[in-house]
C-alpha cells in the first residue's frame, strides 16, 4: 500500500523527469541521506545536476528559488523543518509573493516551498510547530496541504505546475500514512466526494443526515476522522467532514454547502461548524473559516479545536495536552450539538 511519502517522492521524480525546468534544492537532500524526512530520496542519483544541496541558509534558498522562477525555471525548495519558515518570511512575503502583482503581471513566479510541519514526535518547541497560519492571507501566495485523501503526489505536481508561489505544508506524521481509498477501512461508512479545479477538496458524507460539519486539513483529518467515527458509534451523532487541500486563498464554498446540510428543515436549530487544526488557536485557520462561514450562513454555531496558545513542550504528556487530540474534537462536537 502506497504511503503519502511515496506519493510525494514519486511526484518529485515525475516532475524532474517531465520538465527540464524543474530543480529541487534544500538542505541535506542528496543521496544517500535523501533529506531529513526522505521525501527527496533517490532524486539526486537520478538528476544530479538539478538536485542541489544547500548550506543552512533558508532565506537564500527561497530567495534563490524566486530568482530562478523569475528567469524561467520551476524550483521546488525544501525547508527541513516547517518551523524555519520564519527565516523565509521576507523572501516569501516581500519578494516571491509580491513580484507578479507588483510588476503588473509582467512576470510569473512558479516556485514551491515544501515545509514539513507539525508535532506529536517529541521534537520540542522549535521543531514541532504548525506555522502555516502566518502565511494564510498573504496576497500572491498559495498555501496547500496534502492529506491522506486523494493523491498527494498529484497535488504536489499541481503546485509545481502553478505559476504562482506555493507554500506546500506537509505534516510529518502523514509521511508514513497509507493513502486512503474510498469505501474502504475508516471511510467505509462515508460517501467520499471531491471537487475543486486545481487543488481538490473532499467531503465525507455520513450515512445519515449530519448534525455538524467538521472542517479540517492535512494530518488533522486523521484525528477528525477518528472523532467522527466515535461520535457515530458511541453517540449516534453524524458529522460531515470537509477536508481542504487549498488553505489560502480561502475558498470555502464546499463548506458552506455542507453547512446547509447540517440543519433539519423546520427544526429551528442552528447550523454547526467545528474547525480542527494543529496550529495555535488564536488568529488561526479556523478563526478565518468561522468568520467567513458566519458571514455566509445565518444562524451558525462554531467551535474551534486547535493547539493551545503555548509553545509545544518536549515532554510527551505536555505535548499531548497542548496539541489537539481526537478526544478534544469529540468533546467540542458534543458541546456543539
Amino acid at each position: 500500500m502506497s504511503t503519502v511519502l511515496e506519493a510525494l517522492n514519486s511526484a518529485l521524480l515525475t516532475a524532474l523527469e517531465s520538465d527540464p525546468r524543474v530543480y529541487v534544492l534544500g538542505e541535506d537532500i542528496l543521496d544517500p541521506y535523501g533529506g531529513a524526512f526522505k521525501v527527496t530520496r533517490g532524486l539526486s542519483t537520478r538528476f544530479p545536476g538539478r538536485v542541489l544541496t544547500t548550506p543552512i541558509s533558508e532565506a537564500a534558498i527561497v530567495g534563490a528559488a524566486a530568482g530562478m522562477a523569475l528567469r524561467g525555471l520551476r524550483p521546488v525548495a525544501e525547508i527541513m523543518f516547517g518551523d524555519f519558515v520564519t527565516l523565509i518570511a521576507d523572501q516569501v512575503v516581500n519578494h516571491a509573493a509580491k513580484f507578479r502583482w507588483m510588476y503588473n503581471e509582467n512576470v510569473r513566479v512558479p516556485l514551491v516551498v515544501r515545509a514539513p510541519m507539525g508535532g506529536r514526535r517529541g521534537y520540542g518547541p522549535t521543531h514541532s510547530q504548525s506555522l502555516e497560519k502566518m502565511f494564510l492571507g498573504v496576497p500572491g501566495l498559495k498555501v496547500l496541504a496534502p492529506s491522506a485523501l486523494g493523491d498527494p503526489g498529484a497535488l504536489l505536481l499541481a503546485a509545481i505546475a502553478d505559476d504562482d508561489p506555493v507554500l506546500f505544508v506537509e505534516h510529518k506524521l502523514l509521511y508514513t500514512r497509507p493513502l486512503l481509498q474510498a469505501g474502504q477501512g475508516d471511510l467505509a461508512d462515508f460517501t467520499l466526494e471531491s471537487g475543486g479545479e486545481l487543488f481538490p477538496y473532499f467531503v465525507l458524507r455520513p450515512p445519515y443526515p449530519p448534525r455538524l460539519t467538521i472542517a479540517t486539513y492535512g494530518y488533522n483529518f486523521e484525528l477528525a476522522r477518528a472523532a467522527a467515527l466515535e461520535l457515530m458509534m458511541e453517540h449516534e451523532i453524524f458529522a460531515e467532514m470537509v477536508v481542504f487541500s487549498q488553505l489560502s486563498p480561502f475558498d470555502l464554498t464546499p463548506l458552506f454547502d455542507s453547512l446547509a446540510r447540517t440543519l433539519r428543515p423546520g427544526s429551528g436549530q442552528a447550523h454547526r461548524l467545528l474547525t480542527v487544526e494543529e496550529g495555535t488557536l488564536t488568529l488561526g485557520w479556523g478563526a478565518e473559516v468561522a468568520a467567513r462561514a458566519a458571514e455566509a450562513v445565518s444562524g451558525l454555531r462554531v467551535r474551534r479545536v486547535a493547539a493551545r496558545d503555548l509553545p509545544i513542550a518536549n515532554a510527551r504528556p505536555l505535548e499531548d495536552a497542548i496539541l489537539p487530540q481526537a478526544q478534544d474534537i469529540v468533546a467540542a462536537a458534543l458541546s456543539l450539538v
Binding site: 537564500a60 530567495g63 530568482g67 523572501q91 519578494h95 510588476y103
Partner: peptide
C-alpha cells in the same frame, strides 16, 4: 518597485540579493 525587460527592483535591503543569486543560477 519597477520591472522592464531584464530590469527588476525592490525596496527591501538585502532581500534582493538571494533573488539575484537565483537569477544567476537560472542564466
Amino acid at each position: 518597485h519597477i520591472q522592464w525587460r531584464n530590469f527588476y527592483s525592490n525596496g527591501i535591503q538585502g532581500g534582493i540579493v538571494p533573488v539575484a543569486t537565483g537569477m544567476a543560477l537560472a542564466e
